[in-house]
Design a protein around this nucleic acid. Structure first.
Lengths: 107, 107
DNA sequence: TTATTACCCTTGTAACACGAGGTACATCGT
DNA sequence: ACGATGTACCTCGTGTTACAAGGGTAATAA
């Protein structure tokens, strides 16, 4: 995986995931691994510092849950987070269109 | 524009552009501005340091051209650059699919 | 018992986008 | 003649980032 290429996509990925339902960190890495058919394995250093950042920006908040399997920290998207997600999606689409146009041909 | 979101996309964008035909730096910013309908204006600091990086990695090379309008530094893609471009496109598609799956719904 | 898996976290490093600054020359309006 | 604007190149400093490498605990499997 291209390290630099993930920059900027990580927040979009995590916000997208958590917008579906509350998730705990480790679970997110499992899901992404599964979605990518084992190609992409987000490192835990990346994950937890990203979650910390998203929480600091108030796009996510969190709560602890004690299960029989142990303690898990669940993340939940905030209203600001949903707004930011829409923003990032629009941004993503713009970049997507730039990449497409740049690949298609110049006048 | 989301600053961090451009990270990783810049190289893909520039390689895509130059893969079509030789371009000079300033021209690239004009084209991207036009493609984005004035939404995205790549800063010159970003552009020239990116071009330097791409040249250092031997994905681009360059030559000077003296026209009546002044001197211009044209960039040309190398064979390595074309290979890298394909790599980055594949990577981009993977991230795209992760974003899509993450937005669609979790099992 | 030992290894593996699940789950959380921190710190250091290299790379990056960008803003702010600089230079030089041409063109255009007044 | 002259200042402003546009073209065209560049450098340096700053803040942010993904990741590797480390550390930890507890449950389950071999």
């Amino acid at each position: 995986m291209d390290k630099e290429m993930m920059k900027g996509s990580i927040d979009l990925l995590l916000l997208s995931l958590v917008s579906q339902r509350d998730l705990y960190g480790y679970e997110m890495t499992r899901i992404l691994k599964q979605y990518s058919e084992d190609v992409y394995q987000m490192s835990e250093g990346t994950l937890y510092s990203a979650l910390k950042r998203l929480e600091r920006k108030k796009w996510l908040d969190s709560y602890w849950s004690e299960t029989e399997q142990g303690r898990r920290k669940y993340y939940r998207i905030t209203e600001d987070g949903r707004r930011e997600l829409e923003q990032k999606r629009a941004n993503w689409k713009l970049i997507e269109s730039l990449v497409r146009k740049s690949s298609e041909g110049l006048t």
